[in-house]
Computed example of a mutant assay.
Amino acid sequence: MESPLQARPALELRQTSPWGSFERDYDVDAVWRAWSDLLAAAPALGRVDPFRYDLVDVARQALADLSVPLHREVVAAWHSGDRARYAAARDRFLALGADLDALLATRREFLLGAWLADARRWSASPAEADLYERNARQLVTVWGGTPETTMLFEYSSRQWSGLIESFYLVRWKKYFAWLERQPAGYGDRALPRRDGRVVAAANDFYGELARWEFAWGEAHEPHAAAPRGDSVAVARAMFDKWSPVRGQSYATFDWNSLKPSSP
């Protein structure tokens, strides 16, 4: 399910892809219970590769779910005018993204580098390899078109290690740096949107951000194509770190309105 981490940054967000949503039609706490049960089974099954994949995949979804209320906490803190509260919420949201990237790095199935390496492997020349990599990068980000005309950005967004670190989190950091230069009380509800997402023509910042998105798609910086870290150990550390945060955030979050239910 979609996460605000993957979305083109904004305060008012309800989706990542053109026809997606942050709504959940399942018990979000059940995902954390499943994660806990898998960790309990790890002493017996931790060396079984399909088990390790399932553990990472369930943990991935739990953290993706948690990003929804954590983003809303950033928004509420910004609108409160309390800059210290905002900074703490911002940093926690970014830390969740970094930890999700580290978790996904333990499985090849969730590696941007593996996706790009596979694309380049089909080529018959260096120029063709660069073209295939460009296509592979655009498929999971801007999809196509130009910075000014693209309408299907994030159509095929992915929760992948490398993509979170080098694209999604960089984009959010650019946004937060810009947001912090805006006057108190700034909101973006009136910005022009298409399919619920802010378009490049909304203002100078989004125009520049869209150009950066396309530039990322033209780049060829290396990304790890082999897993890093132990899936069980990383999943256990992430559960211990984020489970208390989930308890606090879910207790004051309304999944129907996608807003905090209390200050």
Score class of each variant (00 low, 15 high):
Q6D: 03
Q6C: 12
A7K: 05
E12V: 00
L13Y: 07
R14S: 07
R14F: 11
Q15D: 10
Q15W: 09
S17M: 14
S17I: 13
P18H: 00
P18A: 05
W19R: 13
W19S: 12
W19Q: 13
G20A: 14
G20Y: 09
S21G: 10
E23R: 12
E23T: 15
D25K: 15
D25P: 00
Y26V: 08
D27Y: 01
D27M: 12
D27L: 13
D27Q: 11
D29Y: 02
D29N: 14
A30S: 07
V31N: 01
V31R: 04
V31Q: 09
R33F: 08
A34N: 10
A34S: 15
A34Q: 15
W35T: 00
S36P: 04
D37W: 02
D37Q: 13
D37S: 09
L38K: 03
L39C: 11
A40M: 11
A41S: 02
A41D: 00
A41W: 03
P43T: 11
A44S: 09
L45M: 10
L45S: 02
G46T: 10
G46S: 02
R47Q: 14
R47S: 14
R47D: 15
V48P: 03
D49G: 02
D49Y: 08
P50A: 06
F51H: 11
Y53N: 06
D54W: 01
L55Q: 06
L55E: 12
V56N: 01
D57S: 08
A59K: 00
A62T: 06
A62S: 09
A62Y: 10
L63F: 14
L63P: 00
A64S: 07
A64V: 05
D65S: 03
S67T: 05
S67Q: 02
V68D: 02
P69F: 00
P69M: 00
P69A: 04
L70E: 08
H71E: 02
E73V: 08
E73P: 07
V74Y: 08
V74H: 13
V75K: 06
W78G: 03
W78L: 01
S80P: 08
G81H: 08
G81A: 06
D82Y: 13
D82H: 12
D82K: 06
R83N: 08
R83H: 08
R85D: 13
R85E: 12
R85P: 04
A87M: 11
A87R: 02
A87T: 10
A88G: 09
A88W: 13
A89C: 14
A89W: 15
A89I: 12
A89S: 14
R90H: 06
D91W: 05
D91S: 07
L94S: 05
L94Y: 11
A95W: 01
G97K: 02
A98S: 15
D99Y: 11
D99Q: 12
D99F: 07
L100Q: 04
L100I: 15
A102M: 11
L104Q: 01
L104M: 06
L104K: 04
T106Q: 00
R107F: 03
R108N: 04
E109D: 15
F110P: 04
L111P: 07
L112C: 09
L112Y: 02
